[in-house]
Nucleic acid binder design. Structure first.
Length: 425
RNA sequence: GCCGGGGUGGGGUAGGCGGUUAUCCUACGGGACUGUGGAUCCUGCGACUCGGGUUCGAAUCUCGGCCCCGGCCCCA
């Protein structure tokens, strides 16, 4: 029996947890400033929740299992579908839009590598029932705002509107299976393969090929919208989407977001997206550079609810952590160390320590019966602000010694004045 | 699932064409030091990823597993 971690999982030690908590705190603050409220859903769900949405083939990547009553369950691979379920179960009559956010672990059976684990964390949000360019602009602005607060300044936001390609497919009456294949190739950015594939197709117009090949080249600022208009001037089916796309760029400017990229090749590999989609990359992270993805979708409808469009996205929390330039700050996590100088002042040290803790001061007390000299060493390593030395002589005067660990100065303080003394400094 | 590089005390490492007791740093425990900290000295603890093969002898060569690190595939 070997006691090793399962493959693709991680332990987080103190320093790393500090960093992660810091990021978590920042994201919570930003999301809440945009009026999102936190929810939590179970770690496991019924298997069908995910197979309905994505088909049986995702079983390869699911940690699914049968429980003791033969229910087919699975660890969740993402949190959007559970939220759609949550909505159908208990939020249908909640006033819309509903803004909620989540932070939790997800599980996928994949080959672990840098920035990819079998248990990973997603920090994301959903704005249910607010399909509008305004909702989309706000959510993208919030994503950007989060990156700014995290001091990540080398991230790129790539935005697309899937209504455009859908409109084109509709115009050319492209069959679904061919659509799927094309979307896959577009998502991968394999221009040559896309050309080759389109060439092989019979019964497909040359025009479709020409349009698609040009379309995925469109990457840039809001000026490319004009080019799209020129290219697709004869295709009425794209007009609504293009109109929304245009409004979105206007609104993004009002939200003071300028450094985004319109990119017609962002496909997100999903069929439930109906409007804009976006992905955020940190190029320095290499193969796993994508740190966030999302868009507007109509998932609730797929589960048999009303047609309610929602916009959401999620940060891949672990990748986000990789993208943060850590500055190691030396922070003391404990303010005071209480050290008995001799065995018979030990009990007094607990009394004093507890008094401080009740006053909301973080305190470590020696529990190891080490010698006083060692205790000073430990206090030093803990990087505490004050050492309280409890000695017999001082106690006779109803006092203890408080030492400032930075300056090395020390003072005799009456026991009843300790809290006040430390609180003031 | 595929390709490549790796795995030596808790952390970081040396050794590697086979050959006494496996190197050094750090961390940790104890002490020099009976009421005062990052120093010094002494001392203790602690490792060759696992299994098979070759050999008188394997950390070292060889094969396989496991795991880690990259890169593919995939990424709802």
């Amino acid at each position: 029996m070997e006691f090793t971690r399962p493959r693709g999982t991680r332990d987080f030690l103190f320093d790393e947890m500090e960093n992660r908590k810091e990021v978590e705190k920042t994201l919570r603050r930003v999301f809440e400033n945009y009026a999102y409220r936190e929810i939590k859903t179970p770690i496991f769900e019924n298997l069908s929740l995910f197979t309905t949405k994505s088909g049986e083939q995702i079983l390869d990547q699911l940690y699914n299992f049968e429980d003791k009553s033969n229910r087919e369950l699975t660890l969740r691979p993402e949190i959007t579908a559970p939220i759609a379920r949550l909505y159908l179960n208990e939020m249908q009559k909640t006033p819309k839009p509903i803004k909620l956010y989540y932070f939790g672990s997800c599980f996928r059976y994949e080959r672990p590598q840098k920035g990819r684990f079998r248990q990973f964390w997603q920090f994301g949000c959903e704005n249910i029932g607010a399909k509008s360019p305004e909702a989309e602009a706000e959510i993208i602005a919030m994503a950007n705002h989060s990156l700014n607060e995290l001091k990540i300044n080398d991230a790129e936001i790539h935005i697309n509107h899937l209504g455009i390609i859908r409109g084109i497919f509709k115009h050319f009456q492209t069959p679904q299976d061919i659509q799927d294949k094309i979307m896959l190739l577009i998502d991968k950015g394999e221009k040559e393969n896309l050309k080759g594939y389109l060439n092989e197709l019979e019964n497909q117009s040359k025009e479709l090929e020409e349009i698609l090949v040009q379309l995925i080249e469109f990457v840039g600022n809001e000026n490319i919208i004009e080019k799209i208009e020129e290219l697709l001037t004869n295709i009425d089916e794209i007009k609504p989407a293009l109109g929304e796309f245009k409004q979105l760029t206007k609104l993004l400017a009002i939200f003071n977001l300028k450094n985004y990229t319109l990119n017609l090749s962002v496909a997100r590999g999903l069929d439930y997206y109906t409007g804009i989609v976006f992905e955020i990359y940190i190029p320095s992270l290499g193969a796993q550079k994508q740190v966030a993805g999302g868009g507007t979708y109509s998932l609730i409808e797929i589960f048999g609810g009303e047609k309610i469009e929602s916009t959401g996205f999620a940060f891949g929390f672990d990748r986000l952590m990789n993208g943060i330039n850590e500055e190691k700050k030396e922070k003391s996590r404990v303010d005071v160390y209480v050290a008995p100088i001799s065995e018979n002042t030990r009990e007094k040290s607990f009394e004093i320590g507890q008094t401080l803790r009740r006053a909301n001061i973080s305190v470590e007390i020696d529990l190891s019966r080490k010698k006083f000299k060692k205790l000073i060493n430990i206090a030093n390593k803990l990087n505490v602000k004050y050492l309280i030395a409890i000695g017999e002589k001082d106690l006779k005067e109803n006092s203890i010694t408080i030492k400032d660990m930075k300056t090395g100065n020390q003072e005799l303080v009456k026991i009843e004045e300790i809290v006040e003394y430390i609180g003031e400094k």
